[in-house]
């Protein structure tokens, strides 16, 4: 195994909750990202999945230092991005770019496409001519006439293509795509997903694709990490994770995704989680998932936070009872919304 291009170790992003205007005091902490380790190998795609509020976007932003890092390191090609300052950080960002979720909100409506695409080049003092703009537009499948137009003249899918063109303008090695297709119509999503794949092949990019849609991640990712309430609960190669999910949360998440096929929908077993995602300002003690887990075992799950442990080669799971659950020794028990609230109240 070669050295990963991106290595995240013990990354924490905590946001203070303040009260009072003049004598502001901190009354609590939102633990958006709470101790995450990730490895991304060059030329591969890591899919990061989780529900809204689990901290996946904050994690992505913190890796580019767009969110403040509280603790931990993000090593990109030998350099710790988490401790870089000013100019060093700025020039480092040439190698790491981001594609945002909402293409309309992330493109300046008063700038022409040409200005949007060349702004990163100007910011980094790279010489360019109009052929570079044409080249970028061609790479993302837009006509060269698009250069003189403005974002409002394009459809959602085309706007996302502009956002992607801007991200690759600096020839970065690593691109983070935060929900790249969730704002698009179904028939357009596939176009953008295919484009991301083509660009990876052509330019040798390394991706972190953040998404809530497991089917989308299944389609683009080589490796997948599942996040729950600030921590990674399971990570494995995509095929491995989708064929044999081992963490109870991953299992529930996967069984909740509707499949557009009535035959599958009627026969498959569905695990329905009770309750809502707990607040990251007051997360449950021990295993973060214990309040909603149908396999919870008395006291150990409530008291001790499980570490990611390699269960099979390349497949890591953060669960105390993963062996017993998957061999069938521990049976699931019924949970009701009321018991979930009770368990959260205790912690």
């Amino acid at each position: 195994m070669t050295e990963p291009l991106v290595q995240v170790r013990g990354l924490k992003v905590h946001f203070p909750i303040r009260k009072g205007l003049i004598l502001a005091r901190q009354t609590g902490t939102v633990r958006a990202v709470d101790g995450v380790d990730l490895d991304i190998e060059a030329g591969r795609t890591l899919g990061l999945v989780g529900e809204s509020g689990c901290g996946k976007s904050t994690l992505g932003r913190a890796m580019l230092r767009l969110a403040p890092v509280t603790e931990g390191s993000v090593v990109f090609d030998g350099t710790d991005v988490a401790t870089l300052e000013r100019e060093a950080l700025r020039s480092m960002r040439q190698n790491m770019q981001m594609v945002f979720q909402d293409p309309l909100a992330s493109l300046n409506p008063r700038q022409s496409v040409e200005t949007i695409l060349t702004e990163p080049l100007r910011a980094h003092g790279i010489a360019y001519d109009s052929s570079r703009v044409r080249e970028l537009l061609e790479l993302v499948g837009l006509p060269s006439a698009a250069a003189q137009k403005y974002p409002h003249e394009f459809s959602g899918g085309q706007r996302q293509r502009i956002g992607i063109a801007r991200a690759i303008a600096l020839e970065p090695r690593f691109v983070i795509a935060d929900e790249p297709v969730s704002a698009l119509d179904v028939s357009i999503q596939a176009q953008v997903l295919n484009l991301l794949e083509d660009l990876q092949q052509e330019l040798g990019l390394t991706y972190l694709v953040i998404a809530h849609d497991l089917a989308v991640v299944r389609h683009v990712a080589d490796d997948v990490a599942v996040m729950y309430l600030g921590g990674i609960v399971e990570q494995a190669a995509s095929d491995d994770l989708y064929s044999t999910p081992m963490h109870p949360y991953t299992k529930a998440l996967m069984s909740a995704v509707p499949v557009p096929d009535p035959r599958v929908e009627e026969t498959r077993e569905r695990i329905i989680l009770q309750g809502d995602l707990p607040s990251p300002a007051n997360p449950p003690s021990g295993c973060r998932f214990h309040s909603r887990c149908p396999f919870r075992q008395e006291t150990r799950c409530d008291d001790e936070r499980p570490e990611l442990v390699e269960v099979r080669p390349g497949h890591t799971v953060a669960c105390h009872w993963v062996e017993e659950i998957n061999s069938g020794q521990i049976r699931p028990h019924e949970l009701t919304p009321d018991t979930v609230v009770q368990l959260e109240g205790h912690s």
Binding site: V186, Q189, D213, L214, A215, H219, Y242, M254, V257, V259
Partner: peptide, 9 residues
Amino acid sequence: SIPRLDSPR
């Protein structure tokens, strides 16, 4: 055009 959870990678 829909990515499916149960389709091969």
